[in-house]
Design a protein around this nucleic acid. Structure first.
Lengths: 190, 190
DNA sequence: AGGCGCATATGACAGATGTCACCCCGAAGA
DNA sequence: TCTTCGGGGTGACATCTGTCATATGCGCCT
């Protein structure tokens, strides 16, 4: 519904034409190949693979198409990942609606478009301090599994999982794994 | 932005006029009193108090205004709470956009409008098994606080909090409080 | 060659968490 | 009136978590 509403809004602009809408991340590339858009507007959270993966695939297959990310959560970690890949712009959904058309025009003109408040946040937040393993363990533990279950599910020893969790907890200045997961999630570090 | 886009979409309908837009839950009543809409369309998740509270307040102050809930997550618990209060309709955002205008017209005509798939889910899920206290404790614990911190924050004894958590864990067939919180959250029972 | 960071692991230990049995009280129902 | 249920509580106990010290091996950088 939101996608449809945004499409209606953009159609009103006159100089913008909606050539396709994808409901799932894995539909993006094939739809784009069929319709050859100048600009693609993607969400990060969607079924069928996340938007950043879709963005990378799209850029690989159709480099002429500029990719804009429009997403709900302005997690700095997302922005960082997006900018490291092939994305030319990054907007959050609580920006005013008028900004959307402007952003698309600027992307079309070859500029990079990033929500200024978000860019500032990303710079001040610094880098993800977690190692790959810490991240993985934390991600699994966040679903509510016990340490033993996490250990089994990723084939590590019990104690090792405890160590990773412990070091993640300290790096995130949390007091237990639940809080650590919350913090990491909220900063887009998962 | 989403609100703006939906407003644009509805304005296109011709027979629907947007008289006001609220960014926060606590703006709803005063805006409605000032503009006297026939139908109010509310989200549940918003800053400044949740949409269900706003809906109840709105109904108390302006009973002539029909309240429709349009929200992201079709948690059956939400639907149940909504229907028990004064809401006449409940839609989820991933329904097709065309359904929105139809729903508004039907609400205007005095019908109750509920997403059929969601209604079915709500019936099959059964009732929330948690007592008020169990829910409260679980909600606070879910943010990552320790039992002692939870106890302090809601002025209960340490052991009592443990008891509530334990019984919530068993009712939800979880194995620890993190998993219990996840399950409750996912079913809309928080 | 040596140092560093990461992945992996073990063992020990304190403190947190989850379970259980049992207690009291008040309100609602049979 | 008696029973049941929820709110609130205590104490004991087993297990789980989190921390720390310590170890090996790998790969990278200087």
């Amino acid at each position: 519904m939101v996608r449809g509403a945004l499409a209606a809004l953009l159609t009103l602009e006159g100089d913008i034409e909606i050539v396709a809408e994808a409901a799932r991340g894995d539909e993006v590339v094939s739809l784009a190949l069929a319709t050859r858009p100048d600009v693609a507007l993607l969400d990060i959270e969607m079924p069928g693979g996340d938007g950043l993966t879709a963005a990378a695939a799209l850029h690989a297959q159709l480099p002429a198409c500029r990719v804009l990310i429009l997403t709900t959560f302005g997690r700095p970690g997302y922005l960082r990942r997006a900018m490291e890949s092939s994305v030319v712009g990054f907007l959050v959904k609580d920006a005013p609606a008028t900004q959307l058309a402007t952003a698309i025009r600027r992307a079309m003109a070859g500029e990079r478009v990033v929500d200024p408040a978000l860019a500032a946040a990303a710079l001040s937040e610094g880098n993800n301090p977690l190692t790959a393993r810490e991240r993985e363990v934390l991600r699994v533990a966040a679903t509510g599994l016990s340490i033993a279950e996490v250990a089994r599910s990723i084939s590590l020893s019990d104690g090792t999982v405890r160590n990773y969790l412990s070091s993640a907890i300290q790096k995130l200045e949390a007091h237990n794994s639940t809080e650590a997961a919350r913090i990491a999630e909220q900063k887009g570090w998962l």
